[in-house]
């Protein structure tokens, strides 16, 4: 989508909102869980069959649900946590039968791998990492990236998980001397890893060698950007960022997601598309997820908004349902579904 100025999107795109096709196909709620903090959909082997399962997390339990006929769900296993609450689910993109979770109070204190029972044994929790963990991301090839500490005492590592859920191999990445906020994988480049930093940079590592390849300053217009995904194309990196701290009073509307193009050779970058809210729609980015060319976000207003990143245009809006604001939103790792959750534990599948 060509634009006149770097960093600015087509202004009319923000005005012309056309509701998209989000169709509710299923709902699930765990009667034993009073709240929910996260959801994920991934493949799991259930009785020898590869099933598209849903994983839900409330403060002190993570549950695995298998699909039944007619879009119903049956809980088949739960992992309980008694001491430290669950903060988020950390799925590993191409791994079946295992999911990771981050536990902590406000900041992540532990990362654990969860496995189902087998051969009469109990389900397993394997401690993978502990400490003051700033950021975590599940990567392809059974790898998990995490960072702990800040600035000079920062440690960035990638562990490869064994079949048993434990750590098989650990590699330290060269620290960027700027606090890592979020990681993003580069689609199509399994040996590259990106991170956004507290000093408004995007850093690039070589995962095979641990080398820090580049630090690209992306400007000070937006603080504490979250990087979600990156795509390598024709010598450029296209990076999807979201902006929890963006002002609501920008001329083109409230910016939520931004697609930038970065030349890793020259460290120059430019805006490609700005995804902002339709005029009159209040709110800032609270949390969200990106899959392919679709980005979804829960806004501070309690609404979920979906954009087509290639068009920089809102594709759908999902106002609070049953009088309750949305708390989190995730794209399914198994199908073209959007999973939206509410604090009371209700999960809606669109």
């Amino acid at each position: 989508s060509p634009v006149q100025q770097p960093g600015m999107a087509d202004a009319p795109a923000c005005d012309s909102f056309v509701p998209g096709d989000l169709r509710l196909v299923s709902r699930l709620k765990d009667p034993s869980a009073p709240c929910a903090v996260d959801v994920s959909a991934l493949w799991w082997d259930v009785a020898g069959l590869k099933e598209p399962c849903i994983v839900t997390a409330c403060e002190y339990a993570v549950s695995l649900w298998k699909p039944l006929d007619t879009w119903q769900w049956e809980k088949i296993y739960s992992w309980d946590f008694t001491e430290v609450p669950v903060l988020q689910i950390v799925p590993l993109p191409d791994v079946r039968d295992l999911v990771c979770v981050a536990l902590g109070n406000l900041e992540i204190q532990e990362i654990r791998a969860l496995l189902c029972p087998s051969d009469g044994e109990a389900g397993k929790q394997v401690l993978l990492s502990s400490g003051h963990i700033q950021a975590v991301l599940g990567l392809t090839k059974r790898r998990l990236a995490s960072s702990r500490g800040t600035l000079c005492d920062q440690q960035v590592e990638v562990v490869t998980l064994a079949e048993s859920g434990g750590s098989k191999e650990k590699r330290l990445l060269m620290p960027p001397e700027e606090t890592v906020l979020t990681f993003a994988e580069v689609q199509g480049m399994q040996d590259a890893l990106l991170a956004s930093t507290a000093a408004n940079s995007i850093v690039i590592w070589n995962l095979k060698t641990g080398q820090l390849l580049r630090k690209v300053h992306i400007g000070d217009s937006y603080q504490a950007s979250v990087c979600h995904k990156a795509y390598s194309e024709m010598g450029l990196l296209f990076v999807v960022l979201s902006h929890p701290c963006a002002k609501e009073s920008e001329p083109a509307g409230s910016p939520v997601f931004r697609l930038i193009a970065m030349n890793p050779k020259t460290t120059l970058s430019a805006g490609v598309a700005l995804c902002c809210l339709p005029r009159g729609q209040p709110g800032r980015f609270l949390e969200g997820d990106v899959k392919g060319n679709l980005a979804a976000a829960v806004l501070t207003s309690g609404t979920v908004a979906v954009w087509n990143l290639l068009l920089g245009r809102p594709a759908a809006l999902l106002p609070p349902a049953s009088g309750q604001s949305w708390s989190f939103v995730k794209w399914s790792g198994t199908h073209s579904h959007l999973l939206a959750g509410q604090k009371d534990g209700s999960i809606f599948v669109y």
């Binding site: 770097p6 060269m174 080398q211 024709m234 450029l236 970065m262 030349n263 890793p264 050779k265 120059l268």
Partner: peptide, 23 residues
């Protein structure tokens, strides 16, 4: 954005940067 905004582009940037960066 046009390519001119971003300077010369290399399709092998990952390999080139890996050969230059300190280990």
């Amino acid at each position: 954005c046009s390519q001119a905004d971003l300077g010369p582009i290399s399709l092998n940037w990952f390999e080139e940067l890996s050969s230059e960066a300190p280990l």
